[in-house]
Amino acid sequence: MRQVTVLGSCGAYPEPGRACSGFLVEWDGFRLVLDLGYATLPRLLSHCPDGALDAVVITHEHPDHCIDLHGLFRMRLYGGDGTKLPLYCTPGVLTRLSGLEPEADLRSVFDIHELPGAHRVGPFELTGVLLPHYVPNVGVRLQNHQITLAYTGDTGPDSLLAELGRDSDLYIVEATDRKGEPQQPQRNLLTAEEAGHWATLAGARKLMLTHFWPGNDRDASATAARKTFDGEVLIADEGLVVPLDRT
């Protein structure tokens, strides 16, 4: 099985029936999750009973990207077999989650690898690249000899976005479209049209829009992205499964 399953697609906070950022990547039995925001853990457990994963990657410390990691921590702390789970994240993630339960050591459950940086993770070469946001934040590139998947959960416009998604088979890009953000002097979020622009510069084959601001019209976001991207545009909806192939 080689696929990506959308666990959550909202930015900031979940809408009814939805969850915040989260994606399950499966490749020939290897299971990796990208971000675990609000309400993603129950969805993850429907695919991975008992939290059986091979790796977790968290892009930054904002709760809509990492809060359900603490639930996974408790599951493995009290119900696991003692095997540590590799966790790739920015340092702020540990600081943020440690504040929830200071007496519990996250390192007793997770084998920590700091991002940004490059790591071998199962069948993938993982590269974490710093991107502009309110806190230290990475875009993630997963690559092997058959597929390239790139993901940015949060970011302002930056030339590194073209390199992050270079020749990717699937580029998952935030399309927050938060009102007033394009007028800010320091940009920390993208519009859907900008997501399409960077996917085009990257030469991506497929673009998936995610991290929608609650209440936004997702079809309108897809229409905006198609103004700047000629390839296939997908909307990240909870439960959507996208095969990782080049057909």
Rank of each mutant, 00 (worst) to 15 (best):
L244H: 14
M1F: 04
F23E: 13
Q143C: 12
T127C: 15
L69K: 01
L142M: 13
T90E: 14
P136T: 10
L53G: 06
Y134G: 13
S21D: 11
G92S: 05
A19N: 08
S21E: 10
I112L: 13
P214A: 06
G11S: 09
L85W: 03
V241D: 01
L77V: 08
I235D: 12
S98H: 08
T95Y: 03
L97V: 04
R96P: 00
R187M: 10
L207S: 03
T223G: 02
D81P: 08
Y151E: 11
L97M: 08
V4L: 15
E194G: 03
L94K: 02
V6K: 01
A202T: 06
R226S: 15
V4W: 04
T95A: 08
V173P: 00
Q186A: 12
L190T: 03
F23G: 07
T5H: 05
W198R: 09
L7D: 01
L160H: 02
S46R: 14
W27T: 14
F110V: 15
L240I: 15
S9Y: 06
A162R: 11
P14S: 14
D237Q: 15
L85H: 03
L164S: 00
Q143E: 15
T152V: 12
R178T: 13
P132C: 14
V4I: 15
A202Y: 05
V242F: 03
A52F: 01
G99P: 03
F110T: 13
A162P: 01
I172T: 04
G8C: 03
D245I: 02
D177Y: 04
F30N: 12
T247R: 06
H70G: 03
M1L: 05
P185S: 12
K179L: 15
T83P: 01
W198P: 02
I235T: 15
L131C: 02
F23M: 14
H62N: 08
P16F: 09
V6C: 02
D54R: 02
D28R: 12
R205F: 06
G37I: 06
D35N: 08
A192P: 06
V33W: 02
A12I: 13
G71A: 09
A204E: 10
E232S: 01
A195N: 01
G92R: 04
F73K: 10
L7Q: 07
L190F: 06
R178D: 07
H119D: 05
G117Q: 05
E174L: 05
R178A: 13
L142F: 07
E26T: 15
R246D: 12
G79N: 08
A222G: 13
A220K: 09
